[in-house]
Design a protein around this nucleic acid. Structure first.
Lengths: 142, 142
DNA sequence: GCAAATTAATTAGCGCGCTAACATTCCCGC
DNA sequence: GCGGGAATGTTAGCGCGCTAATTAATTTGC
C-alpha cells in the first residue's frame, strides 16, 4: 500500500522535527530532549539504578550511561553507591534539576507541540502506536 | 497533562523499535532503514539532484550526502553530471537497487509493521501527525 | 565452599540526524 | 562585463540510538 509509506514517512518526519524543536527549547536551560526525558524519568523514580531506568525507558544501558554522565557533569543529578550491592548506582536529582525553569520548559514545549489535538485523537493515536509496537515486538522474536 | 508525556514517550519508543526492526530486516540485502528510504525516494524521482531530494525527504543535505556516498560505494546508485549546471549531480538507481529482493523486502516489512491497523486508524493517525508537524513548524519561526 | 552463571556498569565502535563553515558555480543587477 | 549574492555540494564536528565485548560483583548450583 502506498499510503503506508506515507504514514511511516510522516512518522519519521514528525520525530525529526520534534527532536529539533525540543532541543532548541531545551538549550535555554542546558539540556537536550533526551536528557530532559531522563531527568523526568528519574524525578518519578528517585533512587532507581541505571539498569532499572534503562529498562523503564526502553533504552539500552550504554545509551543511558552517556546521558547520565553528561547530566552528572552538568550538575543535574548525582550517582550514589547502594549498600548491599557494590555494582549498583542509585540516581538522584540535584536542586538544579528540580528548579521550575527546567521542569516547566519541558511541560510547556510538550503542550505546545500537541496543541489542538482533541483528547480523542490523542487517545486513538496512543492506541495505534501501541498496536504498532506490538507488531514490531512480534516480528522481533520470529 | 500527564498523558501528553505518555503519548510522546510512546511515539519515541515506537520510532526506536521501528528503526531497529527495519534495520534488522534490511541487513539481509545490505541496507539500513534510512538507506532503503533514500532508494525508494530516488526510484520515484530518477534524475533528481541531491538538494532536490533532501528537500523532498525533509533531510538536510549533509545527512543525505552520507547516505548517497554509501549507496554509491555499495553499487545501489550512480551520480551523473548534469549539463547546464556544473554544480548539480543527478541521482540514478542501478539494476542492483531495482532488484525484487530489495524493493519487496521494504514493502513487506512496512506492511507487517502496520498490520491490523484499520484504514480509518491509519488515516486519523496521519491527520494527527500532520497537525503536530504544523504545531512544530509554528513554534519554529516564532 | 567454590566454580559457573548472571547481573550492573562500562568501553569501544558504528549509523543517522543535525548545524556551521567552506569552495565552486551560477545568476542577477548595475 | 563584472561584482555580489544565491544555490549546490562538501567537510568537520556533535548528540543520540544501537550492538558487541569487558570488568567487577553477586547469585546459584553442585
Amino acid at each position: 500500500m502506498n499510503d503506508d509509506a506515507h504514514l511511516i514517512d510522516a512518522l519519521l518526519r514528525v520525530m525529526r522535527e520534534l527532536r529539533r524543536q525540543f532541543d532548541a527549547s531545551a538549550q535555554e536551560v542546558g539540556l537536550t530532549m533526551s536528557r530532559a526525558r531522563v531527568l523526568a524519568a528519574i524525578a518519578k523514580m528517585e533512587g532507581i539504578t541505571q539498569a532499572g531506568l534503562a529498562n523503564e525507558m526502553g533504552l539500552e544501558p550504554p545509551t543511558l550511561k552517556r546521558q547520565i554522565d553528561a547530566l552528572e557533569t552538568d550538575g543535574f543529578i548525582t550517582r550514589r553507591a547502594l549498600d548491599g550491592d557494590a555494582r549498583k548506582r542509585a540516581l538522584h536529582l540535584t536542586d538544579k534539576a528540580r528548579s521550575a525553569r527546567v521542569t516547566r520548559l519541558v511541560d510547556d514545549t510538550r503542550a505546545e507541540i500537541l496543541d489542538g489535538l482533541s483528547p480523542e485523537n490523542k487517545s486513538r493515536m496512543q492506541t495505534s502506536l501501541e498496536r504498532i509496537a506490538e507488531n514490531i515486538a512480534r516480528l522481533n522474536h520470529r
